[in-house]
Design a protein around this nucleic acid. Structure first.
Lengths: 195, 195
DNA sequence: CGCCGAGTTGAACTGAATCAAGAAACGTGG
DNA sequence: CCACGTTTCTTGATTCAGTTCAACTCGGCG
């Protein structure tokens, strides 16, 4: 098991029956590989928490090319905050890369649970701050680093995800073509070999 | 005038003398062009609110090249959340591009003011969400768009900043060289002229 | 005047994209 | 267990967007 309830319990030191109630009232959905949780143009109503499986958030440009904004494996949250929070049609898709189990959290959930347990706000804040710093560092990496450097730090940061998704998706996350990633890997392998 | 107090008042509908107290107890600093508010390697203690002037947050890579993560004009917040929130040495610099007046907010300020006025958490949340969506859209733009497209959307989004900073800094924000930006602009001008 | 920083322009170069073809890996049904 | 098609990955040849480096222009300002 790897539930939302357990995750919250592990992050918060307090417990209460009312909180358990709230958490158990959330919708949990079992979804299949390639199912959508959100489509470009739709308005998103939920923050998603991944209990099991793997999601991707991505955009599709005019030429039909995918650009992956994030992968969300177990214990991660994904949301299109622009759509959810500012009630605008979403620019992004969210789709399952594996059969997954996902908890759907309405926007009001945060407020409700915060009423019951004030330390939850602390957690929420930590999560938001953490998200921001990751995005910031990714921007910095896109501005500063070569394709190879970005690949290496991806391998460092997400070794688990590397093994779970096709190479072409890693390329899309890094902002390069699958062909380029293949060559980057070839170069690295050769340089490693000749030591 | 263009104070932090006024800004908060404009964003919140409630007012209280205790809140005014808290706000007035914050340090405000007058800083000169080219002064630093944060250096790479230091640990940041503050969220900065710009009352007047203009800041930039940026990194410097091994080759000494600058990469601008954000500009912060009047009424904006800047912080290195990685450093502030997670107590790590900062990867970034924050520096004044003009003589500026900046309010220094300690991390605890958020908690204190939230105790006094609960609707402040709402505002804090809106700001964090807003920040996240901007970062996300910028990543998407770096993944999807050409230099020219990124320049055009910069012009759209920050027409004011465009006029206040040297072109080379816009280039650094966009992730291209000053020479490239010069050529992008030339091309745009020519294409506009021929019809 | 003459200098200085900011911006432009040119020519050569390079990292990554594109297009096209082939090789491996994989699952599925016979 | 093999034969099959499908999706994934690699490789090569070519093109292209953006970089690099160097020289030059321009406008302000002492």
């Amino acid at each position: 098991m790897n539930t939302f309830k357990e995750y919250i319990a592990s992050q918060l030191n307090s417990k209460s029956p009312q909180m358990d109630d709230l958490i158990e009232n959330c919708n949990t959905r079992q979804i299949l590989k390639d199912e959508f949780l959100l489509r470009q143009g739709e308005q998103s109503r939920y923050i998603f928490f991944v209990e099991q499986g793997l999601l991707k958030q991505y955009s599709v440009d005019e030429k039909g090319k995918e650009h992956i904004l994030m992968f969300a494996p177990e214990k991660w949250f994904v949301a299109d905050r622009e759509s959810l929070y500012f009630k605008r049609p979403s620019l992004y898709f969210i789709k399952a890369l594996e059969d997954s189990r996902v908890v759907l959290l309405e926007e009001s959930f945060i407020n409700k649970i915060a009423e019951v347990d004030h330390s939850f706000l602390e957690l929420n804040n930590r999560l938001l701050n953490n998200h921001i710093l990751h995005l910031q560092n990714r921007i910095n990496s896109l501005l500063s680093d070569s394709a190879e450097e970005r690949y290496l730090s991806f391998v460092q940061t997400y070794p688990d995800i590397l093994l779970r998704v096709p190479q072409a998706m890693v390329a899309s996350y890094l902002g390069i073509t699958p062909e380029s990633l293949s060559r980057v890997r070839k170069d690295l392998a050769e340089r490693n070999f000749h030591k």
